[in-house]
C-alpha cells in the first residue's frame, strides 16, 4: 500500500465579502470550496480540472498552506497544515514545491537565473556553498536548457524557457510533491509539447507526486493518471484518467469533453451560460442551472460525492449512462 501524502477531510473555504444591509449587519459569504475530500498517495499524478471560478487555485493554495481552511482539515502525512511548528513548516516548504501560473512574475526580474535557482538550495542548506554552481548547472541541464542562460535575467528568456526555469527552481529543493498551476497555458503547441514531455519524464523518473491544475482536459490526460473535476467549489467527479475520458458519468465532465476541440468532431457548444457566482449558491445541485438532463429532484437535493466503483466517485443524482 502506498503512503498517503495529502488527505483533505471535508475542507471548506469561505471568504467574507463586504458587509451590506441595515447598519451593515449582514455579511455576504463566498464559498470557494465546499466539502472537498481528496486523498493523494505517493507517486500519484492528479489533475484538477474545471472552468475558471471552479475553485482549483483556491484548493491548491490550501494544500500549500498559503491559506487556512475555514472548516475541515488538510493533512500532510499525519500533520495538520494549520498546526505545523516552525521546523515542520520549513520541512514542508522543502518537500512540497509550487510552480506558479505566471512563471515570469514569480521570478525577481533583477536576479540572474543562477541566483534564482541557487536560492532554494541555499535556503534549505542542501549543500556546501562551493558546490552550489555545479548543482545549479545540473538543474538547468535537467530541464534541457544550456548553461549559458545562467547569467541572464528572466526578462531575457522566452516564454518556454521561463517555464522551464520555474520547473528547475521547483526541483532545486528535491521535493516529493510538485504542484503546478496552469504551467503550460498560453504556450505555442510545440513549446507546450516540450514542457509537457519534460514534466512527464520528471514525474516518471523520480517518482514525484504531481498535482496539476489545468482547464485543458487534453493536457490533464497527457500528464496525469487521475482527474478530479471541480465545479463551483465541489469535486463533481473523480477517478482514473482513462475511465473519466471514456465514460464520463457527470454531465459536467461530459460537457467539458464535448467542448474540447478535436479534429474528428464538429464544434460543439455543449454548455449554455457561464459558471454562476459562488455568492448565492442554488439550493439543489450547483450544476442544475446548466445541466442538459436536469430533473425536478436536482433543484431540491444537493447530491453528495458517492462511490461508483472503489476508484470512481461522482456527485450526481442521475449519472450519465450513455457516454458521448
Amino acid at each position: 500500500m502506498q503512503e498517503t501524502i495529502f488527505s483533505l477531510l471535508d475542507v471548506e473555504r469561505v471568504y467574507t465579502l463586504g458587509t451590506t444591509g441595515w447598519f451593515r449587519r449582514k455579511t455576504r459569504q463566498l464559498k470557494a470550496l465546499d466539502g472537498i475530500r481528496l486523498e493523494l498517495k505517493h507517486g500519484d499524478t492528479l489533475a484538477l480540472v474545471g472552468e475558471s471560478g471552479s475553485g482549483k487555485s483556491t484548493l491548491i493554495r490550501l494544500m500549500l498552506g498559503l491559506e487556512p481552511a475555514s472548516d475541515g482539515r488538510v493533512l500532510y502525512g499525519q500533520h495538520d497544515l494549520a498546526h505545523l511548528d516552525a521546523e515542520a513548516r520549513k520541512r514542508f516548504a522543502r518537500e512540497v514545491a509550487f510552480i506558479y501560473q505566471n512563471a515570469r512574475g514569480s521570478m525577481n526580474p533583477r536576479m540572474r537565473i543562477a541566483d534564482i535557482l541557487a536560492e532554494p538550495v541555499r535556503l534549505h542548506r542542501l549543500c556546501e556553498e562551493q558546490a552550489i554552481p555545479a548543482r545549479v548547472e545540473a538543474l538547468i541541464a535537467r530541464v534541457g536548457l544550456p548553461a549559458g542562460l545562467l547569467q541572464r535575467f528572466p526578462g531575457e528568456l522566452s516564454g518556454g524557457q521561463v517555464r522551464r526555469i520555474a520547473i528547475a527552481r521547483a526541483l532545486a529543493a528535491e521535493p516529493n510533491v510538485i504542484m503546478a498551476d496552469e504551467s503550460v497555458a498560453g504556450l505555442d503547441v510545440s513549446v507546450q509539447a516540450q514542457v509537457l514531455n519534460l514534466l512527464r519524464d520528471l514525474c516518471r523518473e523520480s517518482g514525484i507526486t504531481l498535482v496539476f491544475i489545468t482547464h485543458d482536459l487534453g493536457v490533464a490526460s497527457y500528464l496525469c493518471e487521475k482527474i478530479a473535476v471541480l465545479y463551483l467549489g465541489r469535486i463533481v467527479e473523480q477517478g482514473p484518467t482513462h475511465d473519466i475520458l471514456s465514460t464520463p458519468r457527470h454531465p459536467y465532465t461530459k460537457a467539458l469533453l464535448q467542448a474540447f476541440p478535436r479534429f474528428d468532431a464538429p464544434l460543439c457548444a455543449s454548455l449554455k451560460g457561464e459558471i454562476p457566482s459562488p455568492v448565492n449558491l442554488p439550493k439543489g445541485c450547483r450544476f442544475a442551472g446548466r445541466c442538459a438532463q436536469v430533473q425536478s429532484a436536482c433543484l431540491e437535493v444537493d447530491p453528495p460525492l458517492t462511490l461508483l466503483t472503489p476508484e470512481r466517485q461522482v456527485a450526481c443524482l442521475f449519472p450519465v449512462v450513455n457516454p458521448c
Partner: peptide, 16 residues
C-alpha cells in the same frame, strides 16, 4: 504536438 484526448506521446518540433 497537439494534445488530443488520451494521446500516448507528443513529438515536439525541435528548436524554435
Amino acid at each position: 504536438c497537439v494534445v488530443e484526448l488520451g494521446m500516448p506521446t507528443l513529438t515536439p518540433i525541435p528548436g524554435q
